[in-house]
Design a protein around this nucleic acid. Structure first.
Lengths: 203, 203, 203, 203
DNA sequence: CATGAATGAGGCTTCATTCAT
DNA sequence: CATGAATGAAGCCTCATTCAT
């Protein structure tokens, strides 16, 4: 992980990228395999050559996204060294940046949980939970160190997480806010939620 | 509006309530008319006797929900009198309570925007926008009165709104948190987001 | 059962009769649901209104046929009174007449066992076995009474049964042989197979 | 033809043997080219390298089988010299042995006639007819010589033939009956069908 | 021969919707 | 309102087959 702040272009295969576009626009059940194939410039059996089923496409999409998020998050925390506040802030920033850089993946992953087959869903939930646990851990560490004043770390973690997830449903790269703007605002919100001091990096 | 904090049992017609259950579980496109009819204890033509189309059901569902939210929100603000802080807090509380008392409606409304026909969607967006505007207005009023320190009222409003919407996807009446717990925490988060003082009603 | 020698017109529903024609001509896997619907004068969903699946059609077809065979066979045996030879001959005659009167059903049932889903197949096999057991029983009774000289009743039963089944693959009502001809010849064959005397009813 | 009683291992090419297994289990239309390729340990294009089409595989399979049957039958008849009874009995024995030694081929050939393209089917029917004619001829010769008492040689030939074909659908080499058992029983049945005397070779 | 990619046609099934009774 | 019957369109997926490498 060279730079956890930089996500670069996604690494999706063409069929997967096509499916992402269509899923994001119409939802899993609203997207037909024909739409995906057309978006991918493939025939329907051509699409099935690459993925065994519509469900497998969703699984691949969600899995890739969560892996990427996890890698960046881990790097972000590691990059922060031992300081609880920095660990927390880096983690929130990586969350926010992921939901901007991979907004469609994040949106689909969070929106289509009910469309996943049990096995896929279970895997996804496990990934989400481990991600959530990371966030909770950094908050608790900050509380323990006296940097945060937060009575309900679990609730704060959920709220911060929800807030970052919601970015994916409105943020557009060509919108009025830059990615750095969004990061700054959400860091500000997050600090408030955990009762952090004014923030050593400024507001 | 006798008490804007109390939502009571929903006023949905049986077919509408059935549709709500099915939409919430499977999504609009994942739900079939037959599922809805069965859940409602109606025959398929019986269901069509009440609603002209699947789309009409969705529209009625979403419309009802937004109307209810709007009514309660207006009452909440009015109930606060002239104090900007109280108006803001009551509005946030009504948002949070709505997303707990009507979690399925809220979830479906926020999730199925892409499944709505243009006319239905436009109407829904207008309702959302007016709701969002209320929140922004109370924040700006608080800033003007010097009660809030908030550089980007629009962003804060969106974040608070998102946070409340997200309640609908995890809150369960029989879960570990009471509705009052959830309200308290979210009021706390919301105050932090607009840079309110310590909160005159206690924390 | 008024007259076990008379099968009369089949009692198949129109969709079932259509399926029978198509299955007999193309085989289960070679028959498409569209062919069946067309033969039935229905649209494809119209066909599904009557039967839940292609497999259910096959099951209904086979089940009906075996039931009919069993009813006629039981009546035939009963009609023979206590004489072992008459019981045997009536049973063989009912088998032969069934495979002429219901040649398509019999052909499909015997040919498409491998196309049946496990549950359907098991049921069908049980029906066949009980039918086969009837035949074996009459042969053993004839051996016990000294009317037949047959060392391997089981093998004879299987051979006689196979012979009758094979009728369904060549017999045509408008062919050179009348149904009575076919019965006479097969009674003759069957008597020879169980080592019966010259036949008290003449040859 | 060294010994017409001995069929030895089949001479099928690996792809053909694979196709046989799959056709026997699922039927022609229920078998896919991919199943056959997998069973053969070949890739799909690899399979097409050997055979031009699925239909060509069926044709080769059926053709090989009928040729083999014909060769053995001719040798059996020739081996019998001029005696009509011996000619008949050898022919029946070769039929029975073929349907045991090549049960799958025989089963597929008799079952998939309706799946053959016209040209293939016509060829197969011609082969069957010539085989059937051989049997009829030996019966008629026996009748002419006074060895058989049979009013309808054509019907007897068909019945004997059907009986032997049916062997292929139940005989298993590891079953309770040896091949010699099966031959003995069917010779017995066949003699009875043509009104032969007690059988000079013993029963 | 294998791999990998591709496709038109068609497989079974279900969709939302309607109409007669 | 229910029952029962119906349908055009479309759902996901697989078919036999081909071609480039």
């Amino acid at each position: 992980m060279s730079d956890w702040r930089d996500f670069g272009p996604d690494t999706l295969s063409p069929p997967l990228r096509a499916a992402l576009v269509v899923f994001a626009r119409h939802g899993y059940h609203g997207a037909s395999i024909r739409m995906i194939a057309e978006e991918a410039g493939l025939s329907v059996p051509g699409l099935y050559h690459h993925y065994r089923s519509k469900q497998a496409i969703l699984a691949a999409l969600v899995d890739t996204a969560m892996d990427e998020l996890f890698e960046h998050s881990e790097a972000a925390v590691e990059d922060a060294g031992g300081d609880p506040v920095a660990r927390f802030e880096n983690l929130v920033e990586s969350l926010a940046r992921f939901h901007m850089a991979r907004s469609d993946q994040a949106f689909v992953a969070s929106t289509e949980m009910r469309s996943m087959d049990p096995g896929v869903r279970d895997h996804h939930i496990a990934q989400r939970d481990s991600q959530q646990a990371m966030l909770e851990d950094t908050i608790r560490a900050g509380v323990d160190s006296g940097d945060f004043a937060c009575e309900h770390p679990e609730d704060a973690a959920r709220a911060i997480s929800s807030l970052c997830v919601s970015i994916s449903s409105w943020y557009r790269p060509d919108g009025p806010l830059t990615a750095d703007d969004v990061v700054a605002r959400h860091l500000h919100f997050a600090r408030g939620m955990v009762g952090a001091g004014p923030g050593r990096r400024g507001r």
